[in-house]
Design a protein around this nucleic acid. Structure first.
Length: 903
RNA sequence: GGGCUCAUAGCUCAGUUGGUUAGAGCGCUUCCUUGACAUGGAAGAGGUCAGAGGUUCGAGUCCUCUUGGGCCCACCA
């Protein structure tokens, strides 16, 4: 083929992807008798643009799915996207802001239309980018978490859980994002260590005494204080327990309550209690039947309960209140203090714990299923250590707040009586925290399901649907079966559920993986996948996270533009060691680019030479007529096939890529192809044809082995060998007839010899063009040299090669000694270098060699002299050591003899 | 406060069950451009495997501790 010398990926990538997709290559082959193998994609957000994390995640999935497909499985990779409630709503809201409007001005219906329009226009970006990565997803099965089928699944799931008593509405303290103005689940809150202060504030006694000093990090919340807590055995406060203090500024009377949860050693040992704005205080308030006073609005501003601070931002209020306390002499002390502050995972705003009515999933029974999945159903994490993380989380699980006060998402299927519900809510807000804060749905006029004709409590007919939508993850956790058709009993669901493997990052084990397992077990009574491969996180060199704000992004699309998709994919696979984070730098992708280039050029060489077509099977040559090099490379190939298969079966992507890199580059190209060129020069056309055939045979197998890693370039070359797509080619299996330990041994000897001669040439600076003479002194095995004289001479730069047991060593020679091995006895290599060899230099070279051998021999001797080693080590290890010591001794003698001859 | 993880060549990292002389890519040094590939070829330099102790005939590999990075979880305000 007259291809350009450098591989140009852009030409071929788009073309092949189109052809594969059009040819239905990504669909599971219905005629295949292989067992199903399914993966569901971790659905990227519709708002997403491809980053390195996606590139890693999808490359690994694609490697596996292509591998399984070639192995004859009915391989299915289900793609799709996630509607990403808050994230997407935020994107569209920002767009509205540019238009100087808000979603509230637009109204709910219009706004949701806008989001759909946005999705229509931009939502396919990430999906197109996945195609550029070469992802062999079955796009005919693409799903979206808001499409009709999945919405049906969400509603079904909600109702089933509700009927099972696992969904309830409650008035609780939840994580609230004042910017997004919605509740968040515990998992959606990111804790960050913040350098703050611990403020010591005096609460005077109502009776006029000094009172006591509390310590707090959040002085603005004191406006909502309803009590002060101390430890019952704390001497300092014993006299104050049960007494009344005066809340600074608002002058509200506060009881001092004794409770052993208070840590006497922290701060002052006295804690202010603010049930409406602190999770610990909320529990405390429940236990002691306190009321809760909300002092902030949904926007995080102080409300009318905050007295003089009403209307202020919460942080502004903090500053002002500290000022006022200081002015009144109540701010006793300020000390630096770091604490973990919760932030919204979407917008990074500091979360405000807020009392509000929300929907929850009761998790304890589901967590039990999740634990069972590991203990009984054989759910397996790779690497295994994540099992513990998963189980620990399940063991300490808390109920899942699933309602979100946004508009983009699945509307909650619940209806409220306009008459009963507000009345009930008002009562509950006024009640004490010791009341059951789960809502009594009948009394509250709450109806789950489709719209009822009338309120079951008051029989009124004025009912409205819940304004809230469900947490995005409430649809994601159904993904492994909702994408296959659930709740309908589809053919896909029967065939591909449970799926086989999930590939994802550690960051969503709680959000997604654990919840899918629970949902799978709950709704379908089966775990959704047998194996979970958890890959690392992408970082840049230096260990930092890759982020836009740090400006250290490496854009996979740019890498693709510059070096090609295959280069990106191969490099990623090469760097992916089990579960370790990946530290990236731009130049790491050169490895893949260069490798692709090497493959390309090897293929050019091979395809330009005459050969029988590979498709002419069975093998049209007599194995006995094969040259040693032929036998050797075929043997190496069998090994590469076996090892690559083993590596992929255990998801050791880097191992697989290293094996193929080593085989193609350093065995096939560096040795075999170089020898093959020379074999073909011999003039024997049948040998030339045979060599060409073997080259093609190896190339063909390499293309198949490399295809999961580098689909495009391998297909491009493959098509020059035969017309059928590589995607339908079977995965290679080792051919026992070509496993050839003898060839390995014989070839190894010649390879060693060539390297030694090259070594001597380089050491003594023999000019490249100058041929040397090689004298080989040895008995057994030297006949081999004559047979392979042609390529040995050429590869080592030898002009004349003589093998004889008793040759005279010319003075001024460089020597080397090959140890006895297998069918060979020890060989002495002598390269006469009259004039080039400086005797002093040669002596030093030999002395260095002797020294190294002596060090090794000494270590072995002392090991063998050790009686405990002799009595405890296994006999074969001892025998091996003895054998190798003997050989070392022989070597040493050779070198020492050579040294003598110089002197 | 709990847990996980990493520390191996100048840099970035491999090293499956403990067993001869610890590997790769990049970088570096020397040499090589008559056609597969300079995104290349040949040769080479470079490591007391973070430190200390232990188990073992034998430890980069297993155990304990220390030091120094990274991450996750956690209701000390």
């Amino acid at each position: 083929m007259s291809s350009p010398s450098a591989y140009n990926p852009h030409e071929v990538e788009a073309r092949w992807y189109r052809q594969w997709e059009a040819g239905g290559c990504f669909k599971p082959d219905p005629s295949s008798s292989g067992s199903p193998f399914a993966i569901v994609i971790p659905p990227p957000n519709v708002t997403g643009i491809l980053h390195m994390g996606h590139a890693l995640n999808n490359t690994l999935q694609d490697i596996v799915i292509r591998f399984k497909r070639m192995q004859g499985h009915r391989a299915l990779w289900v793609p799709g996207t996630d509607h990403a409630g808050i994230a997407t709503q935020n994107v569209v809201e920002r767009q509205l802001a540019k238009e100087k409007t808000t979603r509230h001005q637009l109204g709910r219906e219009e706004f949701v239309k806008r989001v759909w329009a946005w999705r229509q226009e931009y939502g396919s970006t990430i999906v197109q980018q996945l195609r550029r990565l070469g992802s062999s997803c079955d796009w005919s099965r693409e799903r979206f978490t808001m499409d009709e089928g999945l919405s049906q699944a969400v509603e079904t799931a909600f109702l089933e859980l509700y009927r099972a008593g696992l969904i309830y509405r409650g008035y609780y303290l939840v994580n609230w994002c004042p910017r997004c103005q919605t509740a968040l689940s515990d998992e959606e809150v990111q804790h960050e260590e913040i350098q703050g202060h611990l403020y010591h504030i005096r609460y005077p006694s109502a009776a006029g005494g000094e009172g006591l000093v509390v310590a707090t990090t959040r002085p603005e919340t004191l406006l909502g204080d309803v009590a002060v807590a101390v430890h019952p055995e704390d001497e300092r406060y014993r006299s104050l327990a049960g007494k009344t203090l005066l809340l600074p500024i608002l002058k509200r009377p506060l009881k001092v309550i004794a409770d052993p949860v208070v840590d006497r050693a922290f701060g002052t040992g006295a804690v202010k209690v603010t049930p409406a704005h602190d999770p610990v205080d909320f529990l405390f308030g429940q236990r002691h039947g306190l009321e809760a006073i909300r002092v902030m609005s949904a926007e995080g501003r102080m409300n009318e309960q905050a007295g003089p601070y009403a209307g202020m931002d919460r942080f502004e209020c903090r500053e002002k209140i500290l000022e006022d306390l200081a002015a009144q002499g109540l701010l006793v002390k300020t000390e630096p203090h770091t604490s973990a502050v919760g932030h919204c995972y979407r917008c990074k705003t500091v979360v405000e714990p807020t009392l509000s009515p929300q929907w929850f999933v009761k998790m304890a029974p589901l967590a039990k299923l999740g634990i069972e999945a590991v203990e009984k159903d054989g759910l397996r994490f790779v690497p295994e250590r994540w099992t513990k993380v998963y189980l620990d989380w399940l063991a300490n699980i808390r109920d899942w707040c699933i309602s979100r006060q946004i508009w983009w998402g699945h509307r909650i299927p619940a209806w409220y009586c306009r008459h009963c519900y507000p009345a009930f809510l008002e009562k509950q807000e006024r009640g004490s925290l010791s009341d059951n804060l789960k809502m009594d749905e009948a009394q509250a006029g709450i109806h789950v399901g489709s719209k009822p004709a009338a309120c079951r409590h008051c029989k009124g007919t004025d009912l409205v649907q819940d304004e809230d939508v469900l947490d995005t993850w409430f649809s994601s956790w159904l993904w492994p079966f909702s994408t296959l058709g659930w709740p309908r009993e589809t053919e896909d669901l029967r065939t591909f559920y449970p799926t086989s493997l999930l590939v994802t990052g550690q960051d969503i084990i709680f959000f997604w993986v654990a919840r899918m397992v629970m949902a799978g077990k709950f709704f379908l009574k089966k775990i959704p996948f047998r194996e979970v491969y958890i890959h690392g996180i992408i970082r840049v060199e230096g260990g930092k996270k890759m982020s836009k704000s740090l400006g250290n992004i490496i854009d996979p699309l740019q890498v693709i533009d510059r070096m090609g998709t295959d280069a990106l994919r191969f490099s990623i696979a090469h760097m992916t060691s089990e579960g370790q984070d990946l530290y990236l730098a731009e130049d790491k992708f050169l490895l893949g680019r260069n490798f692709a280039n090497k493959l390309w050029n090897a293929a050019r060489l091979i395809l330009d030479s005459p050969s029988l077509p590979v498709s002419q099977s069975p093998i049209p040559f007599n194995p006995r007529s094969m040259t040693l090099a032929d036998r050797w490379i075929l043997n190496r190939l069998q090994r590469a096939i076996q090892e690559t298969t083993d590596a992929l079966n255990s998801y050791r992507f880097n191992a697989a890529s290293r094996i193929l890199y080593q085989f193609l580059w350093h065995e096939f190209c560096d040795w075999y192809l170089e020898i093959a060129k020379l074999q073909k020069e011999g003039g024997d056309p049948s040998l030339a044809q045979q060599t060409g055939f073997i080259q093609r045979t190896v190339l063909e197998a390499v293309l198949r082995l490399l295809h999961p890693f580098m689909p495009f370039i391998t297909e491009e070359i493959w098509q020059k060998l035969q017309p059928e797509t590589l995607m339908r080619a079977p995965w290679p299996t080792p051919n026992p007839a070509w496993i050839d330990p003898e060839a390995e041994e014989l070839f190894g000897r010649l390879d060693f010899l060539v390297t030694e001669v090259r070594n001597i040439r380089a050491f003594f600076r023999v000019p490249a063009k100058e041929k040397v003479t090689l004298l080989v002194q040895g008995r057994k095995g030297t006949a081999l040299l004559k047979e392979h004289e042609n390529w040995l001479k050429r590869l080592a730069g030898i002009g004349e090669l003589t093998a004889d047991e008793k040759l005279k060593r010319p003075s001024g020679s460089a020597v080397s000694h090959l140890p006895a091995a297998g069918p060979f006895d020890a060989w002495d290599l002598v390269v006469p270098l009259a004039g080039l060899v400086n005797l002093d230099v040669e002596r030093k070279r030999i002395e260095k060699e002797i020294e190294a051998l002596q060090v090794r021999a000494k270590a072995k001797r002392s090991r063998l002299a050790d009686s405990t080693f002799r009595s405890k080590a296994p006999p074969d290890v001892i025998a091996e050591e003895e054998e190798s010591l003997k050989e070392l001794g022989a070597q040493l003698a050779k070198w020492q003899d050579s040294l003598k001859q110089i002197q």
